[in-house]
């Protein structure tokens, strides 16, 4: 269900973890490398579920787990390299991310997805796709999440892919 929509941003309701996974998967299918996806949302909104779906949409076969220890995990599929960064423990903003080699990751065949992107917003490129997941508000159910997608590029393709089975 789309709850709001304008040119460069729309919000859709996910009704379950499976829904969130599917939205992540559909987003991945609508975009190609190079891309940076900035994921914003509180503890427990389903960011990891979204990334699992996103990786599956890119054709990554390995299990996606939280990259806490090394702050970043990398995966490859037939077509892309996926870098999964968890900025939850990555403090110190841009300096911390640069230390991880962030600037070297941006390659023509790479897609970077960053959880807790608000912690490192000073280093994100302008062309990022911003995904915001919110806890339920108002009359929404406990398992509902409001997922907003905000991107300057490929918005029609993204909207089409994500809303086709919503």
């Amino acid at each position: 269900m789309i709850i709001s929509d304008n040119n460069d941003k729309f919000t859709i309701v996910s009704e379950s973890v499976e829904d969130t996974f599917r939205i992540g998967k559909n987003l991945a299918r609508a975009i190609g490398p190079p891309a940076v996806v900035a994921l914003v949302g509180d503890l427990g909104v389903g960011k990891t579920a979204f990334v699992k779906g996103f990786a599956s949409g890119l054709g990554v076969k390995s299990e996606i787990t939280s990259p806490t220890f090394t702050l970043m995990n990398s995966y490859t599929s037939d077509s892309v390299k996926l870098y999964h960064i968890d900025a939850y423990r990555l403090k110190g903003g841009a300096a911390g991310l640069i230390e991880l080699g962030f600037e070297d990751l941006s390659a023509p065949d790479s897609i970077i997805i960053i959880e807790w992107a608000e912690q490192v917003k000073d280093i994100l490129p302008l062309e990022r796709i911003l995904v915001t997941i919110d806890h339920p508000s108002g009359d929404m159910k406990e398992t509902d999440r409001a997922i907003s997608i905000d991107s300057e590029d490929s918005m029609d393709r993204i909207r089409g892919a994500i809303t086709k089975d919503a």
């Binding site: 702050l71 939850y88 423990r89 990555l90 403090k91 110190g92 300096a95 911390g96 230390e99 991880l100």
Partner: peptide
């Protein structure tokens, strides 16, 4: 050194 940030700062760690 990392506690004020509730996490690990790679820059500080190095």
């Amino acid at each position: 050194q990392h506690a004020p940030y509730r996490g690990v700062v790679p820059e500080i760690a190095c």
